[in-house]
């Protein structure tokens, strides 16, 4: 478009100055209204969970939208061994399963992602396709054969029986995310290190690793959240002593039998969710970058 048209258009726009200003203010107002709606829609159910978690069980269905009848009782119920809840144990199980899964996935994923982002080789497209396909793989297609296999070799209910299938979706996620992160790093520094006499291995360790640390850290958070939130595999392949938190919450026992222990479940949900939410709020920028890495670019 020519500059003269642009000038003419802006001159035309300047004439009804007031109307434009009013229109702009109206547009701004609409943005704020929409933003508020999204904000409320996303946070209100979460808020309701916390309010209920701190509410006396007798007032479970009290619709008062503020913190009323506040009590810690629900959290006591959650951790009550007498009621048959082993929530502390479940938390440790989740921590162990998600932690080991994340570490293993990173250990393998870092090298694969480096090669995919950095090196030219045949079948690169194929490898990426395989990794992507793996991440979209349905969990049930693994659970059936693994259920039988683990039962046969006596692994049913063990930690490795939970960690191994978790790797099937966490490792692809790790490779995928890291590959797109690595592609955007300042690799010229590696070239200069190599010119200065470093081998490719040295350049990787001394120059690239420190640079890559934030990307690896972000990927670790995403991998951990994915493993921590896993339900299907854990619900089928864990037993009473290796049960993870997601499974425990789904089949929670309350003080009264045959009565859904809503407030206690909300308390358990709060315990599981608060660390994640804090993690997400602190590393918001990085997590968004990690989530969207690869999908666009």
């Amino acid at each position: 478009m020519s500059i003269s048209t642009a000038k003419a258009a802006s001159a035309a726009a300047a004439a009804p100055h007031l109307a434009a200003k009013r229109r702009e203010r109206w547009a701004n107002g609409r943005t704020y209204i929409s933003a508020a709606l999204i904000f409320i829609w996303c946070l209100l159910p979460f808020y309701w969970m916390i309010v209920t978690a701190f509410r006396d069980v007798g007032y479970t269905f009290d619709p008062t939208p503020f913190f009323t009848h506040v009590t810690w009782d629900n959290f006591t119920t959650v951790f009550s061994e007498d009621l048959g809840n082993h929530f502390a144990r479940n938390l440790l199980n989740s921590l162990l399963v998600a932690g080991v899964t994340t570490i293993v996935a990173l250990l393998f994923g870092v090298f694969a992602a480096y090669a995919l982002a950095r090196l030219e080789f045949r079948f690169k497209f194929l490898v990426l396709g395989f990794v992507l396909g793996a991440s979209m793989f349905p969990g049930v297609a693994l659970v059936t054969p693994l259920f039988q296999l683990f039962t046969n070799i006596g692994w049913y209910g063990t930690y490795q029986a939970l960690i191994i299938p978790n790797i099937s979706f966490v490792l692809p996620l790790t490779v995928y995310t890291l590959t797109s992160f690595f592609r955007e790093m300042p690799w010229e520094l590696e070239e200069s290190a190599r010119i200065d006499g470093c081998t490719q291995g040295q350049a990787f360790r001394k120059v690239i690793m420190p640079l890559a640390a934030p990307a690896v850290f972000t990927t670790a958070i995403l991998a951990f959240i994915a493993a921590w939130n896993e339900f299907l595999i854990a619900s089928q392949l864990s037993n009473e002593s290796t049960k993870t938190v997601t499974v425990a919450i789904a089949y929670f026992a309350g003080a009264q039998p045959h009565q859904e222990p809503y407030t206690a479940v909300m308390a358990a949900g709060t315990v599981v969710t608060i660390p994640l939410v804090i993690l997400v709020l602190v590393f918001q920028r990085k997590i968004v970058a990690g989530l969207t890495a690869g999908a666009v670019k």
Binding site: F46, F231, T246, I249, V277
Partner: peptide, 9 residues
Amino acid sequence: VPWAIPTAV
């Protein structure tokens, strides 16, 4: 926040 909450929760 909704994204981070486990589906089971």
